[in-house]
Design a protein around this nucleic acid. Sequence first.
RNA 1: GCCCGGGUGGCGAAACUGGUAGACGCAGGGGACUUAAAAUCCCCAGGCUGAAAGGCCAUACAGGUUCGAGUCCUGUCCCGGGCACCA
Length: 855
Amino acid sequence: MQEKYDPRAIERDAQSFWEARRAFSVSEDRSKPKFYCLSMYPYPSGKLHMGHVRNYTIGDVLTRHHRMRGRNVLQPMGWDAFGLPAENAAMANGVPPARWTRDNIVYMKRQLQALGFALDWERELATCDPAYYKWNQWFFTRLFRRGLAYKTTGVVNWDPVDQTVLANEQVIDGRGWRTGALVEKREIPMYFLRITEYADELLAALDELPGWPERVKLMQKNWIGRSEGVRLAFPYELEGERKLLWVFTTRADTLFGATFCAVAAEHPIATWAARRDPQIAAFVDECKRGATMEADIAQLEKKGMPTGLECIHPLSGERIPVWVANYVLMGYGEGAVMAVPAHDERDFDFALRYRLPIRPVIRHPLGDAVPAPWKPEYAEYGTCIHSGKYDGLGYAAAVDVIASDLQAKGLGERQVQWRLRDWGISRQRYWGCPIPIVHCEACGDVPVPDEQLPVLLPEDVVPDGTGSPLAKMPEFYQTSCPSCGKPARRETDTMDTFVDSSWYFARFACADNPREMVDARAAYWMPVDQYIGGIEHAILHLLYSRFFQRLMRDEKLLAISEPFTNLLTQGMVLAESYYLDTPEGRREWIDPAEVEVRRDAKGKLVSAIRRADGAEVIYDGLGTMSKSKNNGVDPQELIERYGADTARFFAIFASPPTNTLEWSDEGVEGSYRFLKRLWSYAVRFKAGGGPAVASELSKATRFEIHSVLNQANYDLSKYQLNTVASAAMKILNALDRLAGVDDEVAKEGLSILLRLLSPITPHICHHLWRELRFGEDVMSAAWPEPDKNALVQDEIEYVVQVNGKKRGTLVASKALDSRALEALVRASDIVKRYIGDLVIKKVIVVPGRLINIVV
RNA sequence: GCCCGGGUGGCGAAACUGGUAGACGCAGGGGACUUAAAAUCCCCAGGCUGAAAGGCCAUACAGGUUCGAGUCCUGUCCCGGGCACCA
């Protein structure tokens, strides 16, 4: 046996052992329970970063663990290969996105293989491959025919200089990232998927996902945002015609407090008012400028203007003004609200600013009046006051009566409102899946027939940042109508990449099938038993996937509704990011490795400069590692220096999977040291020599090893993998202390250690398992379980507290009951010393743990 | 702004269901081995105080519940994720 731990040689050998046996290629073996373990596939951005290493190591640990527990485990890998960064790289380097993407895939695949993940590479897929995106298109045409995909207008960020649509990420402080031009909102035709049709089901089914973290379910629940309320109308007269201004409210009980109505800038009333009054037109224009992001809109200063229109309160008959306001969103409810300043914070602020009346109509905990400033109590439920015949009613009763009174007048009804909006999937971009529609003057929007699929994306294109590349390629868009044969224009928008990622997990089951989107093998493997990925996907990706699974169910492609049985949301790996403002007003992101940082005594950053030229750079805070911020830490050096096992061990040991992790290389050394210690222990063990004599020490060591193992198995079930790594270290420490005393216990302990550790550091464990003749392949060994007999203890150390403060310990036989223990403790030195003459009021005995004396 | 998390030594963290706060590591200090260094091994280590035994303080901050709170409740501050076109 080699004296020295040589990760390079060991890892090469182990990996070729697995490869020769196709150890991770699995099929639909019905003799074992199946287990589909999947980590979210990566975007091929260039090279792996630490977030990937962490994500895939976690997935691999779970995969290998379940495999050793006797399950038929599938762990595939693929590439989320369409997307914006490829177009940006193309613009920067003049290389077509297709080539850039495929080169990245080759490089990153080699990195993943070097890490020794138990991946079934025979199922590899890339979403930019026509064999994959064909099925996006095929499925879209199905949805289109069923009305689940439809065309309407949607709002986008428009860069007036580049004449192009910008992604939210490309809008910085309301300006285009390349041009610096003020971004405008623009309405364009887009395709939408009718996710709202499934809102009810997507919400209700959250309760049947016990394997999902509560917080993710809560986030989805709030995102879907079901609220019960009343849709009601304020009649108004416009150019001699009676019309209705519809609003939605969850607080119909406050209806008598409505002192004005507010409409969004895009509302027909605002459009009408803008035509009459140039000042309103200017204000409406101002509201329509700026980006589309809700975060930006919500932080705007609340502004508004009266439209000059008055409407009639549906119950009191009072005339109240209609305003246009920038805080009302066209996309939610009716695009108009009734404003009740006394009981809604935003309306309150708005009313104060524009001196609109504030009329309290609910008795709240602080009384009847609502003096400024705003207090949260004003919004609480209470009894109606100043509300005519509704006075004295509570929330539920008031809403009930008001709703039915409105209904009788034809001015309202109870309604369920959702926050969730339909999913706009059109992107005016090149590097994505073409939407398979042909626009024909005679036949309208015609889906491309199956036999003409896929609509191939031309691959030798280098976008230039202006307009949409496909819309500039007649050879792409000139076509004939599939229905009437006349010349027609092909749709030039591509699909949101979230479409690709909403079903890729099902395709892994049958990636080689050229005839069907999914087949019987998908029915075997789906649902994914364990899904692992970043918490940043808690809403969009996971919700879209749940939606798509239902679409596929209703298309009779798969029978299940939920794609992911258990979900582990990994915390993000954070790194600091720095940028320079370029003369063109853009941000140039600087790799943190090139930045020299000065900090004050408390560790707060004082200044940062770029090493190369001493330029002062701006600190942008801690954030997720990303291509766009150029702050990803490349694991390559780590792997080359220490080997895959060290990198893997450290990724697991550094922090529990769900924690965010501020990356730092410090500490890697300790993981490497541990593996070296394990190796040298194995060398000594192999040399042999210890007598097999049971002693106090060997008994204590067995107890320690088995209790650590017991805890590790529990931790594993809770995904607390960092303490499993600690457990391995503790076992090695215990074995070290035993060295040369009892070979039987050492052998058992080492066999437990290697099996427990093998999912984390598979290469070294594979090698030692064979070297020490434990068996041929540690992966096929049984998962270790603690021996109950080893866990039995005759004596227990009790903590003795006085008034909850620890004052000492007491070792007692485990056979003693509470009364015996109490007697023992009353007679002990501790009582004499700390209690003296004080009267003992009560003695609390926690079995097996502690005794607390209350005086 | 809204929704969801998090905050424990110099650092990553641990603490079963409310029951010994800091396991296991990193960095650090001391020692052994070595001509020396690296590697390795042993010891120390939350803060203050004390010769020691010990005592007091301590889980972001301020309160509360409890025999007992890192853990439960209320409020505040700070950090992170998401906010529908980054993926």
